[in-house]
Design a protein around this nucleic acid. Structure first.
Lengths: 232, 232
DNA sequence: CGCTTAGTTGAGTTCGTTCAACGACTGTGG
DNA sequence: CCACAGTCGTTGAACGAACTCAACTAAGCG
């Protein structure tokens, strides 16, 4: 089922445990809210297919997108481990999730140390991405930021083999703005510059990447490391 | 030794294991670089005393401070788990660290699931802080950001009982600027406003907090949750 | 004593913002 | 079938927040 090449191999017991750990599946449409800030969710999810994003908001409505979730990503670890969710999660495209029981976490840690290690691995990976985002928003210019974000999403999606032919990212310019800490207007003008340079094309609320390497170069970004990842 | 009230209780075996896990101590002066971006560090550290910060830099020198480290924090988890460090760590004050061997991590995961869980807990905690920082840099104004940062450092340090009488944070305005994504000049002008309102006082490269609650309010920030934390 | 680091302040400029209007497209209800 | 509202993207104009440049104080140190 999950034989994507870049996941590590598992033992039979691990696979069996994960199968029992799983308690159901969940499907949501684009735009659906999957988890809400402040909720005490009893569940942990894994993305099976589709795109989504995590975000936080201030009282007056200002919204900050923290990161994007793609197949293989864990959702709700914070809620599982520390009780309350401190961010919301929304679907960008139709998305399907695998649901795990929160209270089986301890069993997992007790009986399957390598799976426990994988969870830590994924948390560390998420931390890395957040570090990079922080660097972008804090220190890169508007064009650099935009180029970085699109290159980042492009590389992640490509790693996961999410593209078939055309590399289209299902986000609106509003999402880009809310990720980069810019206004929609300025985001639009900045993206137009990238489009004029032939690096991207925007159409039907998706971003088509024409030259991922050039984007990374504009951003001054090294790119993702091509490493194997575990899968839960 | 580590009987600070807000850490959880441990079993005798856990304490013994941690003692064996530990391979030494390390002390560094203020300004010393503890870990460098790109290095393949074989060690994992825990802060015993002192302040430090994690940061990333772009080629042209632009620097972004990602987060601050205080007693009880783990340093180098990324390097331990994924090989290469993607950020640097520098001491803000004289700092002492507890050194652990990287290759004993697997033993820990295998034999001490509750300690493994604690590591995940701390990674999730770090993620939370980064989320909050991202929201700040992306969506808060200069004054809000400054107030948030100082309130954040103040609350963390207070939780750890780092203050004796006067609550002084050992950072320069340059650090504040590099954390918030602002220029030093503008940071200075913004901090002056907070000082004029009687919320902080700046002297001898430290920031003295006069009214932590008011700072949190200016920032529109809820504050840290007062929960127990594990300790490694 | 000069040198460096940290903090301060003013002036002018730039980047990104808000306001405002408009076109293209989609879905909905009369 | 058309009118209408809603979302998304686009563009111009005016404004403002934050930047750069520059000069200066004060403190610490060899």
């Amino acid at each position: 089922m999950r034989a994507l090449s870049h996941f590590r191999e598992f033992t039979r017991e691990e696979i069996e445990f994960v199968a029992k750990f799983k308690t159901g599946e969940l499907a949501a449409d684009a735009g659906a809210t999957i988890l809400v800030e402040g909720a005490h969710s009893a569940h942990l999810y894994t993305v099976l297919s589709g795109w989504g994003f995590r975000y936080k908001a201030l009282e007056d409505g200002r919204r900050q997108i923290l990161n994007y979730v793609m197949p293989g990503d864990l959702i709700g670890l914070q809620g599982t481990i520390m009780g309350e969710m401190q961010h919301s999660v929304e679907a960008l495209s139709p998305i399907s999730l695998c649901v795990f029981e929160r209270d089986k976490m301890m069993t997992l840690y007790g009986n399957h140390p390598s799976l426990a290690f994988d969870i830590t691995w994924m948390a560390a990976q998420e931390e890395r991405m957040l570090d990079e985002h922080l660097l972008s928003i804090g220190r890169r210019t508007a064009i650099e930021r935009s180029a970085y974000l699109i290159a980042f999403l492009f590389q992640r999606a490509r790693q996961l083999k999410l593209f078939n032919g055309h590399s289209a990212i299902p986000i609106t310019q509003q999402h880009v703005a809310d990720t980069l800490g810019l206004s929609i207007v300025h985001t639009n003008k900045t993206l137009k510059k990238l489009a004029k340079q032939g690096l991207i094309r925007w159409q039907e609320r998706t971003c088509e990447v024409l030259d991922g390497d050039a984007l990374a170069e504009v951003a001054g970004w090294e790119g993702l490391d091509e490493r194997r990842r575990p899968f839960l």
